[in-house]
Design a protein around this nucleic acid. Structure first.
Length: 464
DNA sequence: TTGGGG
């Protein structure tokens, strides 16, 4: 490094050839990882930066610090980082910069939309210079017209996710909250529906181990759900164990973000994602081609007559049930949950994933009245819906034999049955899509929203 | 020193 009065920042292109030298760099953050502990005694995070001389892949910077708080906490991809006295190193053919906690320093600035030149985080030994404003201003100007060329095929839609896979997602943050004590989750959406899962849970398990209505301990309040999109899955992404729970998504509600390397899992038949220490967040401008593509797909979807029905349901809903409510359009369970009135009627396309009771002998109360609780699912939500009295008569077409009743419920639950109506042992069940009429109502006048329940009506199982 | 990716 030259004397400190020779204050200059190297273009990344030139830094790459300055192996084993200390350099000053200023760049736009293209990608960043979560701050984490190293296997040694320190903490570290990695960034990839770009500038006009090096726009494509991003130049890796590894930053070390004694404490997590001392690492740069990047608010958003596209922010600017100034790095002083970082060492350029070559590692297995790759060149990158290493931030040394003793002699390196950094400052973080907002990206292209900011007007001021005040850094939002600096390392303790960072020294600001008057010239910095000009460097940052120039970088912001360049960034305005920058076109990122993202490979669209390397980012999955939620409709394409597969269990156990590491995937990249380009999605909108719709909410961020604590799922359980110190367990944070980001709720994301891309306008498509996650694929339906099959269930290994046996029908008789529902009493002791009911399938959850949601993965978080308590359901999200209705006023939060009201901010969610009504069509398309809202996926929960949790932080895997062993690294800092990052609250930065709080700042980004309503924004689209690209995540690199998220793990997909199924819990209780519900899809979720996991952020791992290897997950990266990539710069996602509003006009990013991937984002425009997803927005266009969604606009196309909801402009279609059947766009609010589950993507995966065609043409099954018409074969399994008939509904006596033809004049209304289908709505999603999220529409149902967030409807403005407690008392209302709906028509939905759902899967019946569980039932209590599950034995046909018990569908009727001792007084001979139907009373059951079904668990319904669509790509947006799960609810419990009751079947009472005459609605049961409609659903099961009167009071057929136990054998017929049992066949009808098995059909709804997607149980594979042999010719003699015995269940195929341990086969996963894959409930079919069915159309149902639902009404919502309240139990207690004093707490109409708190006591809201759902009931199936005007729906008949057919083809059994 | 550490990590660099999965």
């Amino acid at each position: 490094m030259a004397a400190t009065d020779d204050y200059k920042f190297l273009p990344i292109r030139d830094a790459i050839t300055s192996i084993n030298q200390k350099v000053n760099l200023i760049g736009v953050i293209l990608e960043f990882g979560f701050p984490k502990r190293t296997r040694g005694t320190d903490c570290c995070c990695t960034l990839k930066i770009i500038d006009e001389s090096h726009q494509k892949a991003g130049f890796s910077v590894n930053i070390f610090a004694e404490y997590l708080e001392m690492l740069p906490h990047v608010a958003s991809g596209g922010d600017i980082i100034q790095l002083c006295h970082v060492m350029v190193k070559k590692h297995i053919g790759e060149v990158n910069a290493v931030f040394n906690k003793k002699f390196s320093s950094f400052a973080l600035y907002k990206g292209k939309d900011a007007a001021d030149f005040a850094p939002y985080q600096v390392s303790s030994n960072f020294r600001r210079r008057d010239m910095d404003d000009r460097f940052i201003g120039n970088l912001r100007k360049w960034l305005v017209d920058l076109q990122l060329h993202e490979e669209s095929s390397s980012f999955s839609l939620l409709r394409e996710i597969k269990e156990g896979e590491h995937i990249n997602l380009a999605c909108k943050i719709v909410h961020f909250s604590e799922a359980a004590k110190d367990e944070w989750m980001a709720l994301v959406w891309d306008g498509t529906d996650t694929p339906p899962n099959s269930f290994s849970a046996k029908p008789e398990d529902e009493m002791a181990y009911p399938l959850p209505l949601q993965l978080e301990n308590s359901p999200l309040p209705r006023d939060i759900l009201c901010t969610f999109p009504k069509v398309g899955t809202v996926l929960r992404i949790y932080f895997d164990q062993g690294f800092q729970k990052n609250k930065l998504f709080m700042l980004n509600i309503g924004k689209w973000i690209k995540f690199v390397n998220v793990i997909c899992e199924v819990r209780g038949g519900l899809w979720c994602g996991l952020f791992t220490p290897f997950t990266k967040i990539r710069y996602t401008p509003d006009e990013d081609c991937l984002i425009l593509e997803r927005q266009r797909l969604y606009d196309e979807r909801i402009s279609l007559k059947w766009g609010r029905m589950p993507l995966w349901s065609f043409p099954s809903p018409y074969y399994n049930t008939e509904v006596n409510y033809d004049h209304v359009p289908f709505v999603s369970l999220m529409d149902v949950l967030t409807h403005s009135e407690v008392t209302a009627k709906f028509k939905c396309v759902v899967r019946v994933i569980a039932a209590i009771p599950w034995k046909a002998e018990e569908f009727l109360s001792p007084l001979g009245i139907y009373r059951m609780r079904l668990t319904l699912e669509d790509p947006t939500a799960r609810i419990h819906a009751f079947v009472f009295a005459e609605d049961g008569e409609t659903l099961f077409d009167g009071y057929p034999s136990v054998d017929v009743l049992s066949r009808k419920l098995n059909r709804l639950l997607g149980l594979s049955v042999c010719n003699d109506n015995k269940m195929v042992k341990d086969a996963p069940r894959n409930p079919p899509w069915v159309q149902v009429c639902l009404k919502s109502y309240y139990i207690s006048k004093d707490d109409v929203w708190g006591s809201r329940q759902y009931q199936i009506f005007g729906t008949k199982i057919v083809g059994v």
